[in-house]
Design a protein around this nucleic acid. Structure first.
Lengths: 202, 202
DNA sequence: TAAATTAGCGTACAGTTGTAAGCTCAATTA
DNA sequence: TAATTGAGCTTACAACTGTACGCTAATTTA
């Protein structure tokens, strides 16, 4: 079972991407790792890197894209779980917390590049998060009587709060994390109920 | 009017701190600037840096501390404005938006180090933000009938939402920023009203 | 006044970075 | 089969990094 050229190239590309993800943790951000480090971890010569990516930023955007894919898997998983019963908020947050526990480096990448030094990176992350917000807006419109306008405001606030809390959770142990999740659920109910009230008043 | 040694040393220290702040913008984070760059901008030899700071991280923590001070000025300013009339939420957000416009580099520093690679930095920023939350909690307890527990949940959600929105505002022009501020005010009302409702129900 | 302290400097060095140039050799194409 | 392509390599270099070491000269202390 020999690989042809294309397959081998893809395999090396994968090795680079995986190596880069593997180098990320709470102490190492994407901007702090060098092209040479990535190449070393991927088992290739530094100059071979250029056969796959124009420069390190192109790799970074690829990582953000892959992180976005993982995020969408999260959404799908949450939908499945909600369909099979349980509170919407509670189920979503439980799923989310499991996600950042299992994919903390992926989540960290998004968080950091969201406020990072590259405009392109920030825009790419923003796109992924907005995807989240749009989805939640649609869901809210279809399950409540809220206008699209109000649903969007509610969804945006919720997503921001969830991501912000997720960032905080990264530094906590699982007991504290569970506690934080419960607090978050109440806070999301504030928003949800507050938006309904607001809709009634106008 | 000659300076003595202590005064001169303080003056150089200030030059280093100011130089470091001056090097920060949307494209340059603290971790991306080098000790040599800072020294160059401050007009001293690289090795002289060590007469003032143990290493670059010690400078970083100093910057975070100064940023915290600036943040507290913001709170004070908001309190003054609220006292002289106008809605609490609206006045606070207007003050906040002016603050991040006038001190975008300071705010960016806090945002970035909040999710940065240094545990010490993250902790330092967290402390500053919690200061904010505590203050808002106290205020909420004293102006509404909410329990400290609920007031704290409300304040935390609000602060997270405000900072998160502030991060987004950094990349926008003033017109978009104003629009974002109005949306934020409504979202804060969601939280405020939602929390009141929640308190009634229990 | 003599001695001690110290902010700031210049020199130096080892380590790392990104990437240019050109080679090898296996897979692909003609 | 012969010619072409291209992934990956080695070598090389200039630019930069943090920081060790020891000096200078002015201030401060005794």
């Amino acid at each position: 079972m020999t690989l042809n050229r294309q397959q081998q190239k893809l395999r090396t590309r994968r090795a680079i991407i995986d190596a880069a993800f593997g180098l990320l943790d709470d102490q190492h951000s994407f901007s702090s790792i060098s092209l040479r480090e990535v190449a070393r971890a991927a088992g290739i010569a530094p100059t071979s890197f250029y056969r796959h990516f124009k420069d390190i930023d192109e790799l970074g955007l690829t990582l953000v894209d892959e992180a976005g894919l993982t995020l969408r898997q999260l959404m799908r998983q949450a939908r499945v779980r909600i369909a099979s019963g349980g509170g919407v908020i509670s189920t979503s947050i439980d799923t989310f917390m499991e996600f950042i526990t299992a994919n903390s480096n992926v989540f960290r990448l998004l968080l950091r590049e969201h406020t990072g030094t590259s405009n392109a990176f920030r825009a790419a992350v923003l796109r992924e998060i907005q995807h989240f917000t749009v989805e939640l807006t649609d869901y809210t419109v279809s399950t409540t009587g809220l206008t699209k306008e109000l649903a969007n405001l509610q969804a945006e606030a919720m997503v921001k709060l969830v991501f912000s809390t997720g960032a905080e959770a990264l530094d906590l142990d699982s007991a504290q994390r569970a506690q934080l999740a419960e607090r978050l659920k109440i806070q999301l109910r504030f928003i949800s109920n507050g938006a309904s009230e607001y809709a009634k008043q106008t």
